[in-house]
């Protein structure tokens, strides 16, 4: 009998569709995704004094730092938003973005041992990274909501509206952008490891080129165009709009950012698929 006459459950071939996403297989491994997330969260803070409180420490102290440096020393505008809220959401979002991006960019290198030993859908790891980061984000966001509510009771006049419904959409947007870009980079970090370090450094710098600690409205002139080309700008401005009703981002900036996200995601999947087949032999 010829090869094609059999009914195979799996066929392993040299060439595969570069955009293939085997969703069914990933769903079958959902328990594994859950366990990866649980492992990431549980093991980060085992044998530490503060445990999961570290999740809150980082945004609290960064916010205080920003208050001192950018509000009191540099006296930057926060567009009628109480500075605490402005900086808190800025740092929470930025750390979500940069930490998701760097983790995705390291995904092959960090998992080379298990990837080299046993097969499971590789995409479960990037997906679990998203959920791990989301968990961290959720905890920090609850802190943000608490401060927000405290401000509301103390006379901060932000009115709540349908805009809040934008938040989940914006989070998905941010996730797609960070993961797509991260996975695209991950295929290069398997070859050049210093790239992961460079990325961390670059992101730390890039925060200041993104309206995180100041609103986009403060940037004007030719520089403004550069800022609008930055795909993260739109997400951050929209997020502030969703929470506080401030921000002035143009539709074209939003479209541009959405376009970039689409490119990042396609590139990410393409390179990830290409890489997962044989990176074991490269690393």
């Amino acid at each position: 009998m010829k090869f094609d006459d059999y009914k195979w459950d799996t066929v392993i071939e040299a060439k595969q569709n570069p955009f293939a996403l085997n969703i069914r297989e990933i769903v079958e491994y959902k328990d594994l995704i859950y366990l990866f997330v649980k492992r990431d969260i549980a093991t980060t803070y085992k044998q530490t004094i503060l445990g999961p409180l570290w999740y809150l420490f980082q945004p609290i102290f960064t916010t205080i730092m920003f208050m001192v440096v950018f509000k009191h020393v540099a006296a930057l505008s926060t567009e009628d938003v109480p500075p605490v809220l402005f900086y808190a959401i800025g740092t929470i979002l930025w750390s979500f973005f940069s930490s998701l991006l760097t983790n995705q960019a390291r995904v092959f290198y960090a998992n080379k041992d298990i990837f080299g030993k046993v097969y499971f859908p590789r995409l479960t790891v990037p997906i679990s990274l998203i959920f791990s980061e989301l968990t961290k984000f959720a905890i920090q966001f609850v802190l943000f909501i608490i401060i927000f509510v405290v401000y509301l009771f103390n006379g901060y006049g932000a009115y709540l509206s349908w805009r809040l419904l934008l938040i989940p959409v914006l989070m998905i947007w941010l996730i797609l952008m960070a993961s797509g870009l991260g996975l695209a980079i991950s295929s290069i970090t398997t070859r050049y490891r210093d790239l992961a370090k460079a990325l961390e450094f670059f992101l730390a710098m890039f925060m200041y080129a993104t309206p995180v600690v100041y609103p986009l409205s403060m940037v004007s002139g030719k520089l403004r165009i550069l800022f609008e080309l930055n795909p993260i700008t739109a997400v951050l401005e929209c997020f502030r709009y969703a929470c506080f009703g401030v921000g002035n981002v143009s539709l074209s900036t939003i479209m541009l950012s959405a376009g970039c996200t689409l490119i990042f995601v396609s590139l990410g999947i393409l390179l990830f698929n290409k890489n997962e087949k044989d990176f074991v032999d490269v690393i």
Binding site: T10, A14, Q16, F115
Partner: peptide, 10 residues
């Protein structure tokens, strides 16, 4: 764990 360079396996 790693893909073949050529051929196939069912």
């Amino acid at each position: 764990v790693t893909a073949p360079t050529k051929g196939r396996i069912g």
